[in-house]
Nucleic acid binder design. Structure first.
Length: 113
DNA sequence: CTCGTGACTTACG
DNA sequence: ACGTAAGCCACGA
């Protein structure tokens, strides 16, 4: 990917891992953090929020540990349509969602083992 | 160094 | 199931 300056190391690390997630699969903030040997769950969230590699990094494939969508485009948007957009993007990849939750979550979960 | 801020997680009522 | 509290880490000011 292109190297943008002023991109924190930790974030770059997250991007590198995340862009390896295959289409039709998802991962969680927890797994990402664990993949970098850290418990910076929240820092991962920041990496998404400040994601400078929008199309390259599939930030929509990152979900919460319980299989819920989590947030999108800046914090949670309960009534916002942006979150629905994220859901649609996932469905485009063959991921089934219901009420903000991934149906076959465990089945399509990608782990960085 | 200390503080505030999170697209988080887990543990308790 | 739901709301709250506490723990956690990285980053910028």
């Amino acid at each position: 990917m292109k190297i943008l300056k002023h991109v924190p190391k930790f974030h770059a690390k997250i991007y590198s891992l995340l862009k390896k997630v295959p289409k039709g699969k998802v991962t969680t903030y927890k797994h990402l953090a664990h993949a970098v040997k850290s418990k910076a769950y929240r820092a991962v969230g920041q990496a998404m929020k400040y994601n400078p590699y929008a199309p390259i990094v599939p930030c929509h494939r990152v979900v919460a540990s319980d299989g819920s969508i989590g947030g999108f485009q800046g914090s949670k948007n309960p009534k916002g349509k942006e979150i629905k957009k994220k859901i649609r993007m996932l469905e485009e990849e063959g991921i089934t969602l219901k009420n903000g939750q991934i149906i076959d979550f465990k089945n399509i979960l990608f782990e960085f083992k």
